[in-house]
Design a protein around this nucleic acid. Structure first.
Length: 426
DNA sequence: TCTGGGGTCCTAGGACCC
DNA sequence: TCTGGGGTCCTAGGACCC
């Protein structure tokens, strides 16, 4: 096993998307900035100034317009190409600070600091310093004996200025850790969301310390095995290992809200072919093959009645061919489409994914398609070189009416212009 | 008028079997 | 009148994460 005592660090970028945008646009400094979700729908990242105005995570932009009239709020469409590029740079810097790293999300990584000599708070400051100097992204560092405690430490480092961006719970006295836990709401624990927080509070468990003191067996019986793990982790016993290798996805989903409502089957067919192709491309990237294609369409959830059917289409044999998956998705669409509805969203999800090339029973009734693999390789190669969407299935449509709105998009500062998917189409 | 996208895991309950 | 019981597998739905 690992050393005598585990130490984890969680490093994350502060207001990551906003920080990325600010790197290339100094006018965004010192003013409230929000980055909007696809279709410019909701705020998914907020600068400190925006948070100070009371803007909540996920708040719809149209509800913020009034606020924006009274304050100079800068709202930007999300530019994932830019964020992914800066994320990769940040992760490679962090990798220099630990023998093992788990990339947990676009802006967060766990580092294994077990056995790291010296003062870990100083080490955390060195990490922040280098990321800031090399790519200009501000970060916070939380350090603890378990991942859950590292997460909690990161929360403390972020919320309380006196920690100066680094909180090392392994260096704090047990009484000091308890005092901190007693002041933090149980909802801040990693794995405790809104619903569980409500249930816990109804049982009188309102702070992190209350949860830490809950009997683990009771936590399991009354809630779940995950809640029991959270209790142990808060007590300093690791239950969640560092996972340096990202396992292949078990499901691949591609879905988007439309730029405007769609009523016709023809438009939905274009969208479904587009999403199936994108999902197939991701599937090939992980050398997978799928046996089930699920397709869904939805009317607005904010209008009654709601219509949101879905259907799973099993394949005769596992496949990674865009054409096969698109055909299956279209078959499913025909079965669930009802005229007379206004659809705002569609999606294609690949399920029952398995490794390609290993142990699947070939479809005995069909002649093997020897041209599929080279064709798909060529498709992916062209799209990788010339930009996503350069080569598409005929059914996907050209400059479709339902495409996303991204009226506030910043330029692709760090990558080729051609890799900005929507900009070319306009 | 406007309300994101992409994942994972767990549990409850039904189907099925002996 | 009265309707086994336990194990396993699968699926749908819920809850969580960022």
């Amino acid at each position: 096993m690992s050393g005598p005592r585990s130490v984890f660090a969680l490093v994350d970028g502060n207001n990551f998307y906003v920080s990325c945008e600010r790197l290339f646009n100094p006018r965004l400094e010192g003013v409230p900035v929000v980055v909007l979700s696809n279709n410019d729908g909701c705020a998914v990242a907020r600068s400190n100034e925006a948070k100070a105005l009371g803007i909540k995570m996920g708040e719809p932009w149209f509800e913020l317009r009034e606020l924006a009239r009274r304050h100079p709020i800068q709202a930007l469409s999300s530019n994932y190409t830019l964020y992914a590029d800066l994320s990769a740079r940040m992760m490679s810097i962090l990798r220099q600070f630990a023998p093992r790293q788990e990339i947990y999300s676009i802006d967060e990584a766990f580092l294994d600091l077990s056995g790291q000599p010296g003062n870990l708070t100083d080490y955390g400051q060195a990490i922040r310093q280098r990321v800031s100097q090399w790519i200009g992204i501000p970060t916070c560092v939380g350090i603890g004996p378990t991942k859950t405690l590292a997460k909690l430490a990161n929360h403390i480092a972020k919320k309380r200025p006196e920690w100066a961006g680094v909180c090392d719970l392994t260096a704090a006295a047990p009484s000091a850790v308890e005092a901190l836990m007693a002041r933090i709401a149980v909802a801040e624990v990693w794995g405790v969301g809104r619903r569980l927080a409500e249930r816990l509070q109804a049982q009188g468990i309102t702070t992190v310390l209350d949860l830490q003191r809950l009997d683990p067996g009771l936590a399991r019986r009354r809630y779940s095995v995950n809640m029991e793990r959270s209790v142990w982790e808060l007590r300093g016993r690791p239950c969640l290992p560092l996972e340096p290798i990202t396992p292949p996805r078990q499901n691949i989903l591609c879905s988007r809200s439309f730029g405007r409502p769609v009523t016709t089957l023809a438009d939905l067919r274009q969208a479904v072919v587009t999403y199936a192709s994108r999902a197939a491309q991701k599937l090939r990237q992980q050398q997978g093959a799928t046996r089930v294609v699920e397709v869904f369409i939805q009317s607005s959830r904010f209008r009654s009645p709601f219509y949101g059917p879905s259907v799973k289409v099993p394949l005769a044999a596992p496949s990674d061919d865009s054409r096969t998956l698109a055909r299956a998705a279209l078959q499913g669409l025909e079965r669930i489409y009802r005229p007379g509805w206004s659809y705002v969203k569609a999606g294609v999800e690949l399920q029952a994914i398995q490794p390609r090339d290993t142990g699947w029973t070939a479809d005995l009734l069909a002649a093997p398609d020897t041209r599929s693999a080279p064709l798909m390789r060529t498709l992916d190669a062209i799209n990788s070189r010339m930009g996503a969407g350069t080569l598409r299935l005929a059914g996907a449509g050209i400059d479709p009416a339902w495409a996303m709105n991204r009226g506030r998009l910043s330029p692709a500062y760090t990558t080729r212009l051609g890799e900005l998917p929507q900009a070319c189409a306009r």
